[in-house]
């Protein structure tokens, strides 16, 4: 049996699913250490649901394939256990129901917020000075319009967890509290996309 790392060593899992029009679904799972260096990468062979599955699973097909089949399989296949798994694919959130690890959706950054992180760019903008804000998250957790997700802020990132797994929010907030401020939770998905693209060349 493989030795599992304790959660105190912050390893982050990033999982995404890429849909290729001809070959099907490719899942990619990247484990990073706290400095963003890769530790493990796992990817699936292309997966394509048949017609019967598409009809009979109906709207539950996405969560079934992305979350239960691809997501949970990839996470279980890895040697290291992450302190949290982040995905940029909402259907993949369903894997949280099959894993012991908290899972969250990383939402793309608001373009209006990004300029302040770059001092070079910030010089080009006028800054408005208001009364001091209260410490703590700038946005209180709230639900999306359809009531499926709970949105919350983590540093400069926007995350979401399913309402059915709202407890994951606290777990993720606690476990990622010591992550360096410069750690970009969106960027690793670009790496996975490129890695899947490399792997896909061998499938042709």
């Amino acid at each position: 049996m493989q030795h599992k790392r304790p959660h105190s060593i912050c390893i982050l899992g990033f999982l995404t699913v890429v849909e290729h029009p001809e070959q099907g679904l490719f899942g990619g799972y990247l484990l990073l250490n706290h400095t963003g260096r890769p530790l493990e990468f796992h990817c699936t062979a292309p997966l394509r649901p048949n017609r019967a599955q598409e009809i009979l699973y109906g709207p539950s097909l996405g969560p079934f394939l992305y979350g239960e089949q691809i997501g949970a399989t990839l996470v279980r296949h890895a040697k290291a256990t992450p302190c949290a798994v982040l995905t940029d694919s909402e259907p993949a959130l369903a894997m949280g129901e099959h894993l012991d690890v908290p899972v969250a959706l990383v939402l793309p950054p608001d373009p209006a917020d990004t300029f302040t992180a770059d001092p070079e760019d910030a010089r080009a903008h006028l800054l408005r000075l208001d009364t001091a804000h209260n410490a703590g998250p700038t946005v209180q957790p709230h639900r999306t319009g359809d009531g499926k997700l709970v949105l919350f802020d983590l540093g400069r990132h926007r995350l979401a967890v399913p309402c059915s797994c709202e407890a994951h929010r606290n777990a993720i907030t606690d476990r990622l509290a010591n992550l360096p401020e410069s750690f970009d939770l969106v960027e690793p998905f670009g790496r996975i996309h490129e890695a899947i693209s490399e792997a896909r060349k061998g499938v042709r």
């Binding site: 493990e40 990468f41 796992h42 699936t44 997966l47 699973y57 089949q69 296949h77 040697k79």
Partner: peptide
């Protein structure tokens, strides 16, 4: 309605 078989390939990287 058999569940699709997911084949996984893994890579490890030295720290």
């Amino acid at each position: 309605i058999a569940a699709p078989r997911v084949r996984v390939r893994g890579f490890s990287f030295a720290p």
